[in-house]
Write a protein that binds this DNA or RNA. Structure first.
Lengths: 110, 110
DNA sequence: ACCACTACTCAGTGCTACTATCTACCAGTA
DNA sequence: TACTGGTAGATAGTAGCACTGAGTAGTGGT
């Protein structure tokens, strides 16, 4: 995706994406970035993910644990807590709402 | 939608929504705002829509015609042009990409 | 004259993703 | 030893977009 359309569209959704990842399994920043790039978000900047993780940690949506790595500096492993799960549920509701409106529009109805 | 989740999520998508509306029929700002509110975007601010319309006009995605109104000041009626249609197509591609990733995530698969 | 509805404009604010750069740990190699 | 590359994280500054809040106008009804 060459343009910056996806950049603007990610605002608000990237947080949900990361929370959804963490709902599946605990993960650390470098790993999440790599996974996103693998999934086609080729332009995701590392800084973006780290900043987002700091944000959701400060909001108390995740628990953090420092885990040593064999390959480099220690990892900060994030896992979703109950509050984060609530936030994720709310995210899915909002996403569904938006998604339905857009699907309706795509089919050319007013 | 009480929270501001939808506010952030609209960044990038609201432009596509408005272009999609204009793909169906020409429209003016007040009308678009009213329609959006009717569709459930109850918190959409008028200023937001007007600013967006100015933006897409400056980018040359729409043609504008001033039409007198019986009920108030003249209306600025916007209609999608060829460049706007291209942009809309690109929007749908980006949206589809994002939508597919999220649908995948929702089904809990990594 | 006043009010309500229609219709558009604009300065200032907050949030989020990007850019660019930095620190730091470890392994392999010249 | 010194150097490179992959791993792992942090951060200051920038840009874009939606929101807030206020304002300007035109029309019609009381």
């Amino acid at each position: 995706m060459g343009t910056k359309q996806v950049t603007e569209m990610l605002k608000g959704t990237l947080e949900g994406i990361v929370l959804a990842i963490l709902a599946g399994r605990p993960a650390y920043g470098y790993e999440i970035t790599a996974w996103l790039r693998d999934q086609g978000f080729t332009d995701i900047a590392e800084g973006t993910v780290y900043a987002l993780l700091v944000r959701i940690e400060q909001r108390g949506l995740v628990d953090v644990e420092k885990v040593p790595s064999e390959k480099g500096p220690p990892r900060k492993v994030y896992s979703l807590n109950a509050q984060g799960q609530d936030h994720l549920n709310e995210f899915w509701r909002t996403w569904s709402f938006l998604s339905e409106r857009l699907e309706q529009l795509r089919e050319g109805g007013s």
